[in-house]
Amino acid sequence: MAANFDLKVLSPSRAVTTVKATAVTLPGVMGYMTILPDHAGMVAELDQGEVTIMTADGAVERFFVSGGYVEVEGNRVTLLADVIERAREIDVNRAQTARKRAAERLGHISADIDLERANRALRRADQRIQMSQATPKS
């Protein structure tokens, strides 16, 4: 059994990180999942939420993702996120503004309001705020 695996984290605009990892926990559309070394091959859709990476050197990296996909093939894992930000780099003021805007949309429901989109925006802002508050800035 391998002790770690190669993990690439990508977004459409850049390569975010490439590390040797011992585990990665991700928000799948059916719930959170953890990938360990020698995981069965798969492709899964990601929901918005927190990604936690345990690196081979013992460090923990946390990211917020807003959808995407993960592919596991052998001991190679590729995470392609629609939007991704390191937890310590989340702009909490921007997240609070987005939360206020989404809450206002939901408070004034009319025929032209996309409720699913507004609820998703509210949840995304809440998750980003929560992650930012739980992460020390370095």
Rank of each mutant, 00 (worst) to 15 (best):
Ala2Ile: 00
Phe5Glu: 01
Asp6Ile: 00
Asp6Glu: 13
Lys8Phe: 06
Val9Asp: 08
Leu10Thr: 11
Pro12Thr: 03
Ser13Gly: 05
Arg14Asp: 07
Arg14Ser: 07
Ala15Asn: 14
Thr17Tyr: 04
Thr18Gly: 09
Thr18Glu: 13
Lys20Leu: 15
Ala21Glu: 10
Ala21Thr: 08
Ala23Tyr: 04
Ala23Ile: 11
Val24Ser: 02
Thr25Asn: 11
Leu26Gly: 04
Leu26Val: 10
Pro27Lys: 10
Gly28Lys: 10
Gly28Met: 05
Val29Asp: 09
Val29Thr: 12
Val29Asn: 02
Met30Phe: 08
Gly31Gln: 09
Gly31Ser: 06
Tyr32Asp: 15
Met33Tyr: 09
Thr34Ile: 05
Thr34Gly: 09
Ile35Asn: 04
Ile35Met: 02
Pro37Met: 01
Asp38Tyr: 00
His39Asp: 10
Ala40Ile: 09
Ala40Thr: 06
Ala44Met: 12
Ala44Asp: 01
Ala44Lys: 07
Glu45Lys: 09
Leu46Ser: 05
Leu46Lys: 03
Asp47Thr: 13
Asp47Pro: 07
Gln48Trp: 12
Glu50Gly: 03
Glu50Ser: 10
Val51Asn: 00
Val51Gly: 07
Thr52Trp: 07
Thr52Gln: 12
Thr52Asn: 03
Thr55Cys: 05
Asp57Trp: 00
Ala59Leu: 10
Val60Pro: 01
Glu61His: 14
Phe63Ser: 01
Phe63Asn: 01
Phe63Arg: 12
Phe64Ala: 12
Ser66Arg: 03
Ser66Asp: 15
Gly67Leu: 04
Gly68Leu: 00
Val72Ile: 15
Glu73Phe: 15
Glu73Asp: 15
Glu73Arg: 13
Asn75Pro: 00
Arg76Glu: 14
Arg76Met: 05
Arg76Gly: 10
Val77Ile: 06
Thr78Val: 15
Thr78Ser: 13
Asp82Leu: 11
Val83Phe: 05
Ile84Thr: 07
Glu85Ala: 10
Arg86Phe: 13
Arg88Gln: 14
Glu89Lys: 06
Asp91Lys: 12
Asp91Phe: 04
Asp91Asn: 15
Val92Pro: 00
Arg94Cys: 06
Arg94Phe: 05
Gln96Ser: 09
Gln96Cys: 02
Thr97Asp: 15
Arg99Thr: 07
Lys100Thr: 12
Lys100Gln: 10
Arg101Asp: 15
Ala102Arg: 00
Ala102Cys: 03
Ala102Tyr: 02
Ala103Val: 04
Ala103Thr: 08
Arg105Leu: 12
Arg105His: 00
Arg105Asp: 06
Ile109Lys: 09
Ile109Cys: 04
Ile113Phe: 05
Asp114Ile: 00
Asp114Arg: 15
Leu115Gly: 00
Ala118Asn: 11
Ala118Tyr: 04
Ala121Phe: 07
Ala121Gly: 02
Leu122Asn: 12
Leu122Pro: 08
Leu122Ser: 04
Arg123Ser: 11
Arg123Gly: 06
Arg124His: 11
Ala125Thr: 05
Asp126Tyr: 15
Gln127Phe: 10
Arg128Gly: 01
Gln130Asp: 03
Gln133Glu: 14
Gln133Tyr: 11
Thr135Cys: 02
Pro136Gly: 14
Ser138Lys: 04
Ser138Ile: 11
Ser138Asn: 11
